[in-house]
C-alpha cells in the first residue's frame, strides 16, 4: 500500500472516470430514453410513450447483445469495487468540519464523501434487486431484459397494478441515489483535474468548474427524467409494447444472424 500509494490514488481517480463515469453517462442516456425515446420516429408503436418504451427496450437489447459483454461487466464490477473500497478508506481519513467552515468547497468535499457512501449502498441495492434477482429485498422486482421498461415500472411503483407505498420509497430512494451518483461524478471530475494537475490557476479551476457543473446538470436532468419516467409509466402499456416487439423480432431471430444493426432496425420498424 505504502509503495504503491501514488499509483492507487491515481487509479482510484481514473476508475471513477473510466470506466465507471463513462458507464454512468451511457446508462443514464439509455434510461432516459424512456422520456425522450419518442423522438425516434422509427421506433415501434404509435404514441410518444410507446415509441419511448420501444426505444428503451431496443437499447437494452442492444446492450445485451454486445460482444464480450461478460468481460465488460467484469471490468465494470471490478472498477466499481476498487473505486468503492479505496474511496471508503480515503474518505475515512478525513474529518469534515462543515459546521465551522461554511464554504462551498468544503460542503462539496463532505458531500463527495457522503454521496460516495450512499452511492455504494444504492448501486448495491440496484444491482442486487434488478440483476441478481434478490427478490427478498424490499421493493425488488424480477428483472427481465425482454421486459425492460415494465420491470422498472414494477420496481419503482411497488407492484404491477398500482403505485404502492413501497413504490414511493423505492422511487425516492432511486431519485436520491441517482442524484448522488451524478453529483459524485461531476464533482469528482472537477477535483480530478486538480489532482492530476490539469487545472492549476484559479481561473482554470473556475472554468473547468463551470464545465463540470454543466455536464452535471445535463446528467442530473437525464437521471431525474428516467426516475420520473419509470415511476409514472403505465405497466400494462409497457408490457404491451414489449410483447409486440418480441413478436416482431422473432422472424429476424430465425433469419440470418449476419445482418447489421441498421438492418435490424429497419425490420423492427417494418
Amino acid at each position: 500500500m505504502q509503495k504503491h500509494h501514488f499509483l492507487l490514488r491515481r487509479l482510484h481517480s481514473l476508475t471513477g472516470i473510466v470506466p465507471v463515469g463513462v458507464f454512468l453517462i451511457m446508462h443514464l442516456t439509455t434510461n432516459s430514453t424512456i422520456a425522450w425515446g419518442g423522438l425516434n420516429s422509427r421506433a415501434h408503436g404509435d404514441g410518444w410513450i410507446d415509441r419511448s418504451i420501444a426505444t428503451f427496450q431496443h437499447e437494452v437489447e442492444f446492450i445485451n447483445n454486445m460482444p464480450l459483454l461478460l468481460l465488460i461487466e467484469i471490468t465494470l464490477w471490478a472498477s466499481i469495487g476498487f473505486h468503492s473500497i479505496l474511496g471508503v478508506v480515503y474518505a475515512m481519513s478525513g474529518r469534515p468540519n462543515n459546521a465551522d467552515y461554511k464554504y462551498g468547497g468544503n460542503a462539496r468535499y463532505t458531500l463527495q464523501r457522503l454521496t460516495g457512501y450512499f452511492g455504494i449502498f444504492f448501486i448495491f441495492y440496484h444491482v442486487a434487486t434488478l440483476r441478481w434477482g434478490w427478490d427478498w429485498l424490499p421493493g425488488a422486482a424480477k428483472w427481465s431484459h425482454e421486459h425492460a421498461a415494465s420491470t422498472l415500472a414494477h420496481a419503482l411503483q411497488g407492484s404491477t397494478e398500482q403505485f404502492t407505498t413501497t413504490g414511493l420509497f423505492v422511487s425516492i430512494f432511486y431519485f436520491i441515489g441517482v442524484s448522488a451518483l451524478v453529483f459524485h461524478f461531476a464533482n469528482g471530475l472537477w477535483t480530478a483535474a486538480i489532482t492530476w494537475g490539469l487545472t492549476i490557476s484559479r481561473k482554470a479551476q473556475q472554468r473547468w468548474g463551470f464545465a463540470c457543473a454543466g455536464l452535471g446538470a445535463v446528467l442530473m436532468i437525464m437521471a431525474w427524467v428516467s426516475v420520473v419516467g419509470f415511476a409514472t409509466l403505465d405497466y400494462e402499456q409497457a408490457r404491451g409494447v414489449e410483447e409486440a416487439m418480441k413478436l416482431d423480432s422473432l422472424p429476424i431471430d430465425s433469419g440470418s444472424h449476419t445482418e447489421t444493426a441498421a438492418v435490424e432496425q429497419t425490420d423492427i420498424d417494418g
Partner: peptide, 12 residues
C-alpha cells in the same frame, strides 16, 4: 503516503 494526492480538494 500522506502526499499531495491525499488532498480532498475542500479548498478550505
Amino acid at each position: 503516503a500522506g502526499g499531495v494526492s491525499d488532498c480532498g480538494n475542500a479548498q478550505n
